[in-house]
């Protein structure tokens, strides 16, 4: 086999397996799975710790993106045209996390985001994914039974609303733009942003209206 040929094969192989985690990711996965199996590690403790540090940054950025899109139609258009450029306007470029696509909920459509293979996620605006997002149960059921999954999170999607499931990849990440609740017409961006939950931007929550009274 010529060197050129083997190089091409290597490139194809790398592309096919672009979802293979990096060496340190595999090492962490190996450590964690062994420690949990031996009863030496409680994964909930790890999640709780991560939550503390990511809540400071993660979903708040996404919430600001959503609140701005609700209040600024020109920004909303730019965000739909190019999500990555849209969040960069707000200084939320983050790291190399693939292209961001923003998918809007409407009265007729509900969007749900999953990564069926691993845990691809719009880190730049949502931080670190919650543990349930990475579970095999969510990754498989979100595709098979999205309405059932959303119902378990507490929102029933009406039968006449179409549910679209978006499978994240290393190349494209999705952010759901929830619908702006009624009764918030005179609210500013900061107040609106406090209404926006992480789950509503993943799509496991639809109705933010119930939070209006507390905003």
């Amino acid at each position: 086999m010529s060197e050129d040929h083997s190089g091409r094969i290597g490139a194809i192989h790398r592309e096919l397996h672009s979802h293979l985690p990096s060496a340190p990711e595999l090492r962490v996965k190996a450590l964690e799975s062994l420690l949990v199996e031996k009863g030496l590690l409680d994964p909930n403790t790890v999640d709780a710790w991560i939550e503390v540090y990511t809540e400071q940054i993660g979903p708040k950025r996404g919430a600001e993106v959503v609140a701005r899109a609700w209040t600024d139609p020109a920004f909303r258009d730019r965000l739909f045209a190019d999500g990555t450029a849209g969040i960069t306007e707000l200084g939320f470029e983050g790291w190399a996390g693939g292209h961001l696509r923003v998918v809007p909920n409407t009265p007729a459509v509900h969007n749900l985001v999953v990564c069926t293979l691993c845990s691809c996620y719009p880190h730049a605006v949502l931080g670190i994914p919650p543990n349930w997002y990475k579970t095999a149960a969510y990754r498989s059921r979100a595709v098979r039974d999205p309405r059932g999954v959303i119902a378990e999170f507490g929102d029933a999607i009406p039968d006449d609303v179409e549910v679209r499931v978006w499978d994240s990849t290393a190349e494209v990440r999705y952010l759901v733009l929830p619908e702006r609740p009624a009764g918030t017409e005179d609210w500013d961006v900061a107040r609106l942003a406090r209404l926006v939950t992480r789950n509503s931007m993943i799509g496991t929550e639809r109705d933010l209206g119930r939070l209006v009274g507390r905003g």
């Binding site: 985690p21 990096s22 340190p24 990711e25 962490v28 964690e32 403790t45 790890v46 999640d47 710790w49 991560i50 540090y53 990511t54 400071q56 940054i57 993660g58 983050g94 790291w95 845990s119 996620y121 880190h123 730049a124 931080g127 670190i128 994914p129």
Partner: peptide, 13 residues
């Protein structure tokens, strides 16, 4: 962001 990539958070966690 606090963590550049998830494995950083998981390792420290």
């Amino acid at each position: 962001t606090v963590f550049a990539v998830p494995w950083h958070a998981e390792a420290l966690g």
